[in-house]
Design a binder for these strands. Structure first.
Length: 421
RNA sequence: GUGCCUAUGGUGUAAUGGUUAGCACUAGAGCUUGUGGAGCUUUCAGUUCGGGUUCGAAUCCCGAUAGGCACCCCA
């Protein structure tokens, strides 16, 4: 006897049974319809990419430890894409001369990461990726954040349920490099620490900062603890620093003008990746059950230069399916289960099946979703099953119907029957 | 990758180291001969896997696997 195979899905990935798929499709529908409303075009690519695409940007360590990477039979190193941004940058760079800018593109790729699974974190997930290429002005940020806002609302959250947090890479770099004169190494460490600020006890955070900044620590902490953007601007020396801060204000004002008021400057918002060059933002659920980033994105003006082209300004964000589902569960906005058919046709005796299929075909031509019961069971069981599946209407086909060509449609809610022929 | 917690039919659960691992739901079969949602009868199905301790293990120990939590990382 062969050993029985396990029915479990591979570690960290999900099976989508029909009930799950209905939810997944609902999420995709939201993503697609909002993206299309903003005039974005859909694209896609293979899950396989040359490993070098990620090495160039993320470094050897991330590729080796955080991705699915293997060597194919032709000795090529292949990676299952862990994110979409390098792919879209590659595609845009490839056709740069023939594309019409500004370019508005979106995609719903599945992405793979080799990591320890836990709640909200799996090895394969689906993510909406939205990018706009070729716009230097902050209007690009305002537009994509507006989209992120619309999508969050479509998940069923109210303005008071979530918050849009903004920061600027330029501003943080200015503060760390120019104001405090830190080298790349130290400012990287400080950035990581600041990113973790909310997770650490205040005294631990402060003493870690002191270790890195010594005498300048107090000044830095004062800056970080600014009440708001104006407060922070007042403490910044130098014109370009103030300009960087005013960019954030422009976004806040622009969004407020669109009626989006739950926006907040957050100097501790860092975002992990190096390729961001300007504004970075996240959408955060305020519900304590779910304190995770719902969306994250920002401006990355330099990424296309990796492909030898001149720079193309770009702003984009990503939104994951796992958090989307968790949010809908938390806020009770999951779509109701829908019946798989509008009409069920029950067959009294098996010899009536052919006529039943004919009736079904006609009804489908009229736009109905119709399923014919092929179980060969007794009529009562067939009707009972249709009812359990939530089908709204039932037609029974027996000898009499075959003979006359007439049949009755029964409404399962009211019990009323209507003669059709 | 590291540490901690958890693991009983498909689902949810019960079982002082000692009966044949119990219950509910679901699923299958049957009972009322062409109109259901009920009831009754009945069947299938489980201690995650591999070792160990013990007269005896779902229960204790070790390892593996999976899930959760924290770290790491966050695309």
């Amino acid at each position: 006897m062969a050993k029985k195979l396990s029915t479990d899905a591979y570690k960290g990935v999900r099976d989508f049974f029909p009930a799950d798929m209905a939810i997944e499709n609902k999420i995709f529908d939201i993503w697609r319809s909002v993206s299309e409303k903003y005039g974005y075009e859909e694209y896609n690519a293979s899950v396989l990419e040359p490993a070098d695409l990620y090495r160039a940007k993320s470094g050897e360590e991330i590729v080796n430890e955080q991705t699915y990477t293997f060597t194919d039979r032709g000795d090529r190193e292949v990676t299952l894409r862990p994110e979409m941004t390098p792919t879209v940058a590659r595609m845009v760079a490839a056709r740069k001369r023939e594309l019409i800018f500004p370019l508005r593109w979106f995609s719903i790729p599945n992405l793979f990461r080799y990591e320890q699974p836990q709640r909200g974190r799996v090895r394969e997930h689906w993510q909406l990726n939205v990018d706009i290429f070729g716009v230097e002005s902050l209007a690009a940020e305002i537009e994509v954040i507006n989209m992120a806002y619309d999508i969050t609302r479509a998940y069923g959250l109210k303005d008071t349920d979530f918050e849009i947090r903004l920061n600027s890479r330029k501003l943080m770099n200015y503060i760390l490099r120019d104001m405090f004169g830190l080298d790349a190494e130290i400012s990287r460490k400080v950035s990581k620490l600041v990113d973790k600020k909310d997770k650490l006890p205040a005294d631990v955070f402060n003493s870690e900062i002191e270790k890195l900044l010594s005498v300048k620590a107090a000044e830095f902490l004062a800056l970080l603890n600014s009440k708001n953007l104006t407060d922070l601007s007042a403490k910044i020396s130098g014109k370009s620093g103030v300009n960087n801060a005013s960019e954030i204000q422009t976004i806040i004002d622009g969004l407020a003008n669109l009626g989006i008021k739950n926006v907040r400057f957050d100097p501790t918002l860092m975002r992990g990746f190096d390729y961001y060059t300007g504004i970075v933002f996240e959408v955060f659920d305020l519900n304590p059950a779910n304190r995770r980033s719902v969306f994250g994105g920002g401006r990355y003006d330099d990424l296309l230069a990796l492909f030898g082209n001149e720079k193309v300004p770009a702003v984009g964000f990503g939104a994951g399916d796992v958090i989307a589902r968790d949010l809908m569960e938390t806020y009770g906005t999951l779509p109701p289960a829908l019946a798989s058919a509008d009409i069920a046709i029950c067959v009294v005796e098996e010899k009536n099946t052919l006529f039943a299929l004919e009736v079904a075909s006609e009804l489908r031509d009229e736009g109905n979703r119709v399923s014919v019961d092929l179980s060969g069971k007794k009529l009562g069981d067939q009707i009972s099953k249709a009812n359990k599946r939530g089908v709204a209407k039932v037609i029974c086909i027996g000898d009499e119907e075959v003979k006359t060509g007439q049949y009755r449609v029964k409404d399962m809610k009211t019990g009323a029957e209507e003669e059709i022929g």
